[in-house]
Write a protein that binds this DNA or RNA. Structure first.
Lengths: 361, 361
DNA sequence: ATTTTTTGGTTAAACGTTTAAGCAAAACTA
DNA sequence: TAGTTTTGCTTAAACGTTTAACCAAAAAAT
């Protein structure tokens, strides 16, 4: 009986508040407190399952919160706690399968821990990348996971992030100079695997359309190429080793350049699938048969490598694993906040995926 | 002379604060106020170029802010102002060129107005989409720009957004039932253009692998197909009109289904480039010549349509324009806050891009 | 029966801004 | 010269949480 009276009383207060709500305004913790005649602090604690709040109160609070359609104000709690529960992700672009897959896996891991991600694209522009960092800092992200733009050489902005004490994790495109966590694949070994494979297919004159030497991953690929070529005592001529921006357009251009040579290569290893695609276009236009006349190998295992004609041999970079590891590395910082954790450098082994473009002639 | 003394005095206070800063903690408006011996409010106003603050003070404030490496706390200002300056973007996935391009253009337009975007992927899952909406609301975004997942039929979550008074703009995948701003292309007319083109190429038996009928854009494409086929008095048989999830895999499967028919079509129009790619694979595997035996048309003008063999005729959806219009529509809400603006339904004309896969046999 | 501990809260301050209201001094007006 | 307006600030409250510190009442321990 007394229960019933209480319930009716509560209903009355509730309906009063629901009416108030209709006149705009979002429900706050205070509204819930008023309905139940307890303090806002108690409500906050109840919602956060504090041990010093009784089960009964917790239940009531959650009930009223539900009824009033309460949505916690993330800004307020973030401000108070000094944590935004937001992680910034910077990538050169999202429309490559590699980056998209990395992002998806980062998100998956972080969402489970209550983090959300903000994705920004640098479009391979240094300036855009700096802007991205600024906006992410401005948005008070709790960490940044990034893959650097091709253009980036000046590391001041990244140093700024480090200086602020915000966890910074790089993947794929990183820099050795920046003493920071990194997740990537073994580019050097991948290059060697490719040359090894081409040699086995009987290729004797292998060219490499590589990325910018100053970028570490491309530098490693170049070194892998050089060492493997030397190991097999194949010709290592300057005109066989070309630096490229690795866009589709530039890949085409650089391949045309290779075709001008008096002595053409019988295999070309391109450091990016997109550039390899351009190279393939150049070859097709000149009716050069792939792989019969020239074998072609790309890098990245983008889906289109499997569907073009001929399909392109490439390197699978394990994007899912990279994304997961990057996220876990970040979470490492949030967990053991006191213990100064040691720097993580995770180098995964990549996998050569052999397709038509490098088969035996 | 007096100036010099003042400067020295200021320097002293400054260095004291810089020292304090090194012992951690971020610079706040209060620190600046203390250095200059003015109130925090004055600093805030100075930084926001309030007219009631003298030029001299403004200059000094900005100087000190610079020196102390002050970064405004976005959370605090957002909390106080009730605006987060964040816009949520929900897409089925980012690794299609269409969505990636839309996002890029949304970002470009919004950044100029001081907004940042949070991108979330639904992966075509209704549940993930609901989660995305929840997290975006939780993050206190000022607006949401979304393209719905294939699965989505229940609109409750979107109604929730509307109910909260948060501007909601849909693009590409939208729903008529949801009375909300929308930017997309004329799917009905695009379908007709495709059929028109195929008829001109002498095709007499045209099949359509379409999307889910319940999704508006796919329904429009289907209606366009039906009306155009009827108009030209071509056969409109149930087995020529197939419903598909439009993934690459399902496109392949549905094409195989079409090839089982006693009377095969001589042209197939697929409502998505990804599914068209799968269809092409099926055709290649069976040594069926494209376009000679069967013509193929996709939808979306994804870059790979131009590089596969044969290249695939498709529809360019003007992704850049869609992104821009979506962003501008959102900004419309932020500007005229009082005036209840009328609903925007922008339907752009798409463009047929003719390639090898639909040339004359 | 008294002391100690535990339970279930409350109060008040804090997070870093913004902003309405107020106010003294300076500058203008008549 | 007195009154009015403008300038250039200051004070204090507010945004919605969280949390340290406190406290009364109940339960447990002695």
């Amino acid at each position: 009986m007394i229960e019933l009276v209480k319930t009716i009383y509560l209903l009355k207060r509730l309906s009063k508040y629901i009416k108030k709500l209709n006149i705009k305004k979002k429900t706050t913790i205070k509204d819930i407190a008023n309905v139940l005649n307890i303090s806002a602090a108690a409500v906050s604690k109840a919602l956060n399952d504090d041990s010093r709040i009784s089960k009964k109160t917790k239940k009531a609070v959650k009930q009223v919160a539900e009824n009033l359609n309460y949505q916690p104000n993330h800004l307020a709690s973030a401000l108070r706690k000094g944590k935004s529960k937001l992680v910034g992700v910077i990538v050169p672009r999202t429309n490559s399968n590699f980056f998209s897959s990395v992002i998806q896996n980062i998100e998956e891991v972080l969402n489970k821990e209550g983090y959300n991600i903000i994705i920004t694209q640098s479009n391979e522009s240094f300036k855009k990348e700096c802007d991205s960092i600024d906006t992410l800092l401005f948005t008070q992200v709790d960490g940044i996971i990034a893959s650097m733009a091709n253009e980036t050489v000046d590391l001041d902005y990244y140093e700024k992030v480090k200086a602020k004490g915000i966890p910074l994790i790089l993947f794929d495109r990183g820099e050795n100079d920046l003493n920071v966590d990194y997740i990537g694949i073994n580019d050097y070994k991948s290059s060697q695997d490719i040359i090894e494979h081409l040699v086995k297919q009987g290729r004797k004159r292998i060219a490499h359309i590589g990325g910018y030497k100053r970028t570490r991953i491309f530098n490693n690929r170049i070194r892998g190429y050089i060492d493997a070529v030397n190991k097999h005592q194949l010709p290592l001529e300057p005109e066989l080793l070309i630096e490229s921006s690795l866009t589709t357009e530039d890949g085409k251009e650089k391949m045309e350049q290779l075709l001008q040579l008096k002595e053409r290569p019988d295999a070309v290893y391109v450091a990016s699938d997109y550039a390899a695609l351009g190279a393939l276009q150049a070859l097709k236009e000149r009716q050069i048969k792939v792989p019969d006349d020239i074998a072609l190998v790309g890098f990245g295992d983008e889906p289109f490598t499997a569907v073009v004609t001929p399909s392109i041999t490439s390197i699978n970079q394990h994007s899912a694993e990279i994304g997961k590891q990057a996220a876990l590395t970040f979470l490492g910082y949030t967990k053991k906040k006191t213990v100064k954790q040691s720097l993580n450098k995770i180098i995964l082994d990549a996998e050569l995926v052999i397709r038509e473009s490098s088969k035996n002639p």
